[in-house]
């Protein structure tokens, strides 16, 4: 499948509306060229839902989503998403999945820009002393041999 039959300009506007660039947090937007290219490339098997979502957004905006002011664009997206339609949920997942693996995004979040393997992660042992009070509790499972 390809994304050639999606209204790419509207999709870009939708991505940039859902996750806009932020100077305050040092974040690119999902309409950043590299991120958007990754979004389009990764649509794959989700093409039918993505196409449907973009078409619905276009219809709700009178085929002029990009021309709406920011408040109206955000209200339209959040209203559509709140309805829980599989198409917009899928579109949100596709955009978020590509956005939150971009190096600049991860580094701005103080995360490492890498796959989990092979380095893995440190997880602290935690406070095992908390278990002592539980250990002192008598067994409370039903032993069928005694019932």
């Amino acid at each position: 499948m390809s994304a050639t039959d999606i209204d790419i300009d509207t999709l870009r506007d939708v991505a940039g509306t859902m996750i806009p660039a932020s100077a305050e947090f040092g974040m690119p937007g999902a309409d950043d060229p590299a991120i958007f290219e990754d979004i389009v490339k990764s649509i794959g098997r989700d093409l039918p839902h993505v196409r449907e979502a973009v078409a619905e957004i276009s219809a709700r905006s009178g085929s002029a989503f990009g021309a709406l002011d920011r408040d109206k664009r955000e209200a339209l997206i959040n209203g559509f998403h709140a309805g829980g339609a599989p198409s917009i949920m899928t579109l949100g997942r596709v955009i978020a999945s590509a956005y939150y693996r971009d190096d600049r995004v991860l580094l701005a979040l103080k995360l490492e820009a890498r796959a989990p393997y092979p380095k893995g992660h440190e997880v602290e042992q935690g406070d095992w002393s908390l278990l002592e009070v539980v250990r002192k509790r008598p067994p409370f499972w039903r032993d069928d041999r005694k019932v």
């Binding site: 509306t17 859902m18 996750i19 806009p20 932020s22 920011r70 664009r73 955000e74 959040n78 949920m89």
Partner: peptide, 12 residues
């Protein structure tokens, strides 16, 4: 999906 994270300017 749970409605706790908005899309738009408040997302970050």
């Amino acid at each position: 999906a749970s409605g706790h994270l908005p899309w738009g300017r408040d997302h970050h």
